[in-house]
Structure formats: structure tokens, C-alpha cells
Design a protein around this nucleic acid. Structure first.
Lengths: 346, 346
DNA sequence: CCGCTTTAGTAAAGCGGTTTAGGGGCGATC
DNA sequence: GATCGCCCCTAAACCGCTTTACTAAAGCGG
């Protein structure tokens, strides 16, 4: 009762394996009568070509891999990936491709890469000196990087992280904030120090804050989860050096900060302004709705997939210019109410 | 400059292909000296076994497929899947498996199933008479159903939809609501009328509402997206028959209803109570925080994967009892303030 | 009726691995 | 000194499909 193979169909229909193969992949090479017969027999027997055999023979598997830098449970806690997959998926469906999620197996992303039977890879947030990249071009699978630094061999899709971050920080400055805390993105993988994305955003924040009469901002590393954001809030300085605003690099972390702040009795934005990064859909429904830097995530996925598919067809493609970001001002930021001044006024 | 194959390594190391294969899969069958040498040469040449060839030969691909009933862009708009994947992923990583997302290709889920080189399938929300199921057991790939009706051949993971729904409806009744609208889940796939899940939840709502002195509830089909929820709100009866509460079958739809209601000047929960279903993380941060029926989504994924892996090992497994749900009362529901009574009081 | 092009179908060689059955060498056993 | 067993290693079959020749028959103009 094992699987029906092409030979079974061939003998049942009284033709060669070749004929059966042609019936499916090259129907015009068969006479009308035999074509019908073969297809009929195949249907009756419930024949389905074995995907692995097909992939081996055709040198193409019809799937593209998504390199997930961390455990699925941590990465999928951030709606960012969901959005990205929506973009990737749209293109995949259009080109009859399926999507393979490739997280580190047994702690090793390299190992997982080798195992994966794919025609191309999309990597998320890989740092440019990650060893996984070596493996990738050693086995010569076309790859498109998302949120990394591009290299000659690998086109990269990026957004204007620096600009977006700069705009966010300036927004806070304009509202009068000077005591600002930065929630830094954690490294995508254990080995590296920090993602290119985090580096660029930090640079953007700094460029705005430096020389704006603001004291050196406190920087706290926070994961991209709500819980991590909440923990980060707890570790913020209290008392005199308490920040009046926080820049979060991820909406999830920002939401965590808001929750924790509110739980501790602070009001957002009156006592603490919070700005996120990404503009995931949930940011619009939070309480208060989150001020954040919008990036076109779905579009990013779409673009990445499109480029990868081109590469898979043999084209050489360049990294496109960074996608632009925009500040979405909602209700989680407000003008600083200087409590010191108010106190003096009494 | 094509790929390095096992033969390349074999000749370079002066051994047979078998020896190279053993070096990787059966190292104890080789002498220490040759083992080292082969491994060394392989490393130098950058050899990586071809996954498809391996899969063909070993009859196992090391990946499990997730059958997505609709386009990725619509399915991944609901955090439910993200949560589910977290659960699936945890088990996959533990067993060195990768996860293949299989949406309908060219409109056909059956076709996509055939293409997929996987060792097992997890299906989401398939109705028991879906043609995809036939294909599945014709090619004899072990499958575990999530949110479907189980059948002898296919174990199914479910929650107590009926009970959860009943509890939600009773909650509204206890708060005094009688004019209740139900947002019905749309069918998972075009062909079928409605998912088993939707049917069971509806039954739960009905059992509570029937004979509770409530008029026949209005039922509106709403997608699982926020936008669909908003649209559903618009199509609710106005005026005298305006519902004072809505039961949503999905948190996303519930959030859509809240937004739309608030946008139209209604207050939640004072003017309209809303209850969701699922308790996705975002429900806790909405404004107001959403009252909803909690189901253990991550656990569901974990369990499904665990069962599937057992099946893949040859064990026959039964459908486990439905996972239990619980009502999480937050701030989107409140006691009915009967405006008619209030008017009379004047 | 003959040579030439199409047409319809096939045999066999891959694709790149794994695995079974077995062979050569060599020290230990009797 | 023949025999046995053990340790290493290999030849060859196989996994299930695609594809490149190639052949036999049919069609066709002259």
C-alpha cells in the first residue's frame, strides 16, 4: 500500500514512464488519445508525482525559505513578521511558490539552511558578518536580505531607519522633552552584537538628540516583546533622572512600556511620552493609540520576494533605495509638562 | 561552478560515495583515520548534502506542512495564526523539523498539497468534507486537524467552542442585554458553507440566548479582519432594533466593531458591549481592553504538532478531548443601561 | 514509389543521495 | 596452517521523476 509511482501509472496505461511524465509536463508531445488515457489512469490510481523526486530531477523545489534568526515562538510574538509574510506570501502565491520557515535548528541556523530544500532565501535581520551568509553563498542559493546591510552578492531591502528614528526623536524634542530613554533592539542572533537596523536607528536618535541640550540619553536593551518592554520600563532610572519620554525601536516594546507605566500609576502621555517603531496594525488600537514610525512592512516583504524571484530566474539585481518611513503621531506623546516649573510656581 | 556533490568529495578523499555518506550518517562504521579525512575534505570543499536527494532517498523531508485555507495575506492578518505557529514551532524546533506554509496555489489547495514535500500536515479549519482531505489520505501523509471535526483517520485538536460561546452569551444576558448581534465566522474556504468551529460557536450562543427572553439575534457574517469587523458594524440594524451587545467569534472582528462604533460616536461599553473570541495578546491592550473567550492557542499548536510527530513515527493517535476555554472579562462589556427606562423615569 | 519531414512514443541516462549485501585483509583460535 | 570472525570499506541497486537522444510509423510532395 505504498505510494503510487509513475511506473505504476505507466504499466497500468500500457505506456512508458516518459509518456506519463509528458502527460503532465508536456502534454502537446502526446497524441490526444493516449494523453486522455494516461491522465485517466493517473486519476483513477490517485497518482501524484513525488515532490522530492521532482525537485531532485528538475533542480527546483518551488519553495522559498525565510531565514528566521531566532526561535519561532519569539519571532512570531512580533506582528512584524506576520506583516512581512503577508507581503512575501502575496508574491509567492502569484508565482506558485510555497514558503518555508527556517529557524535555527539545534541552535544552528547554518545547519537548518543546509537541510532546507528551497530555491531561494529571504533572510531577516542578519548581520553582514553572520556565518550563515557564508553558508548561503557557498551552496549558491540566491538570497535577498531584509533589514541587513547589503553586499555586492546579496541585494538588501531596507527602510530609512536613520531618518525615521531621527524624525521620531525630533518630535519628542519639539514637544519639549529632554530626558529621553532609548529602548535598543536586541541582537538578532546570539553571536552578534546588534543588528544593522538597531545601529541605524540608534544613529538617527543620537543625531537628533546630540547637541539639542539633552543629557546623554539612557539606553536600555529590550526584546521585541511586550513583556520585554515592560521589563525595560522597570529598569529605567527613577526620581530626578526619570525620563519623560521613551523611544522604543519596536511597537511591541513600546506597548510593554505603556502597560507597565500605567500599571505603576503613570499616565501616558501626560507623565510619560512613548513612541514606537514599525506601525504594526495593533498600534492604532492601543490605549492610548501609539505614536510611532511607520514603515511599509507588507510592501517590504512584497519587494523582497519580487527581487528574490528575479534572482532565481537568473537576473542580477541591485539593492533598491531604502523605503521611506513616516512618523505617525497618535496619542502616546504629548508636550512636556515641566513639574519642576509647576512646583516653583506655587 | 555547480554544486559540490557526494561524488566530488568521494574522489577527492579517495574513498567511495558510501564512505562519505557513512561519515555523515553512520560515523561509527568508518575507521577513525578515514572518518577524519573525509570530514576534512568535505569541509574544505564546502560540501552539503542535497536536501531533495536526501529526502528522496530517505523518504523523509524533515518538514511539516501547515495547510492554510486562504491567502497568506488574509490569514496572517489574524494574530491567531501567529500564536498557533509559536506552538507548532516549539515542537518543530525540538524535533529538528521546519515548517512549510501551504496556502492554495492558483486557487487550489489540493494542488498545493501535492507539490509540498513534507512528512506530515497540520490543517487549519478544514471542513470535514473538504476535497483537500481526500487528497491527503490518498497520498497517505499523516495529518492532524486543527479546528475541524475529527474523523477516524484524522485526529483533530479542538477547543470547547460551544461551551466558550455559551459562557460569553450568558455573560451578556447576566448584564441585562437582550438585543444581541452575532458576528459569524466566514467559511474557511470558498467551497464550503461554514467551518465546524463557527457552527459550534453559533450553537453555543444560541443555546444561551434561546428562551432567555431575547429576540432572535441578528447574525452577520464578518471576516476575521479588523476591517471586516468594522464593515459588519455598519450593517447592524439601527434605531429601535439596534443591538446593545455583539458577540464576535474573533477578536479581530470585535476590535473592528469597537473602532467603528467609537468612530460613529458610540461609547464602548456604555452604549455597546462587545465580546471577542480567542484572546489574542492584542486584546489586552485595546481601548477598552476586550472581554473575550480565551482559548489556549499556543498550547493548541503545541499539541497538534506533538500528535502529528507521534503519527509520523507510526503511532496511531486519538483526538484528545477539547481544550477548555474561559471567559476573560475586561472592559468592553458592561451592564445594560436601558435608555427606555431612563426616559420613562424623567 | 521514393526520400524527407513530422508525429508519437520509448529507452536510458541522469539528478544526488542512502543502504544492502558482500569482499578483502588480518589477528585470534584450534 | 586452515578457519573463523571482525573490522573497514565498496559496488551496485534503489528512491521516483525528467529529459535527451533516438526509432518506428505516418504523412507528403514530386
Amino acid at each position: 500500500m505504498s505510494r503510487v509511482t509513475i511506473s505504476d501509472v505507466a504499466t497500468a496505461a500500457g505506456v512508458s514512464k516518459t509518456a506519463v511524465s509528458f502527460a503532465f509536463n508536456n502534454p502537446e508531445r502526446l497524441g490526444h488519445a493516449t494523453l486522455e488515457r494516461v491522465l485517466g489512469v493517473a486519476e483513477d490510481l490517485g497518482y501524484t508525482p513525488h515532490p522530492a523526486a521532482r525537485a531532485l530531477s528538475m533542480r527546483r523545489s518551488g519553495t522559498i525559505g525565510v531565514l528566521i534568526p531566532q526561535r519561532l515562538s519569539t519571532v512570531f510574538a512580533n506582528p512584524f513578521v506576520s506583516e512581512l509574510i503577508q507581503g512575501l506570501g502575496e508574491q509567492c502565491e502569484e508565482h506558485d511558490l510555497t514558503l518555508l520557515l527556517v529557524p535555527p535548528l539545534d541552535g544552528s541556523l547554518e545547519g537548518a539552511i543546509r537541510q532546507a530544500s528551497v530555491d531561494g532565501f529571504i533572510s531577516i535581520g542578519l548581520s553582514p558578518n553572520d556565518r550563515a551568509l557564508e553558508v548561503l553563498d557557498r551552496i549558491g542559493i540566491p538570497t535577498v536580505l531584509v533589514d541587513s546591510d547589503g553586499s555586492p552578492g546579496h541585494p538588501a531591502i531596507n527602510i530609512d531607519d536613520e531618518g525615521g528614528a531621527h524624525e521620531a526623536a525630533r518630535h519628542l524634542l519639539q514637544l519639549g522633552h529632554r530626558q529621553v530613554a532609548i529602548l535598543v533592539l536586541p541582537p538578532a542572533r546570539e553571536q552578534v552584537n546588534s543588528t544593522p537596523t538597531a545601529t541605524r536607528r540608534l544613529a538617527g536618535y543620537r543625531r537628533a538628540l546630540d547637541g539639542a541640550g539633552a543629557p546623554e540619553p539612557v539606553a536600555v536593551v529590550a526584546g521585541i516583546s511586550v513583556a520585554a518592554g515592560a521589563r525595560a520600563f522597570e529598569s529605567l532610572p527613577k526620581g530626578k533622572r526619570r525620563p519623560t519620554a521613551v523611544l522604543a525601536m519596536s511597537d511591541m516594546a513600546a506597548i510593554g512600556v505603556m502597560s507597565a507605566a500605567q500599571a505603576s500609576g503613570l499616565r501616558v502621555p501626560e507623565d510619560l511620552s512613548v513612541v514606537g517603531f514599525d506601525d504594526v496594525p495593533a498600534s492604532a488600537w492601543t490605549n492610548p493609540p501609539l505614536t510611532t514610525v511607520r514603515q511599509p512592512i507588507v510592501e517590504k516583504g512584497r519587494l523582497a520576494a519580487r527581487l528574490l524571484i528575479q534572482r532565481m530566474k537568473g537576473a542580477t539585481v541591485e539593492s533598491p533605495p531604502p523605503l521611506s518611513t513616516s512618523l505617525v503621531v497618535r496619542k502616546s506623546t504629548s508636550r512636556l509638562i515641566n513639574s519642576d516649573l509647576r512646583n516653583k510656581g506655587r
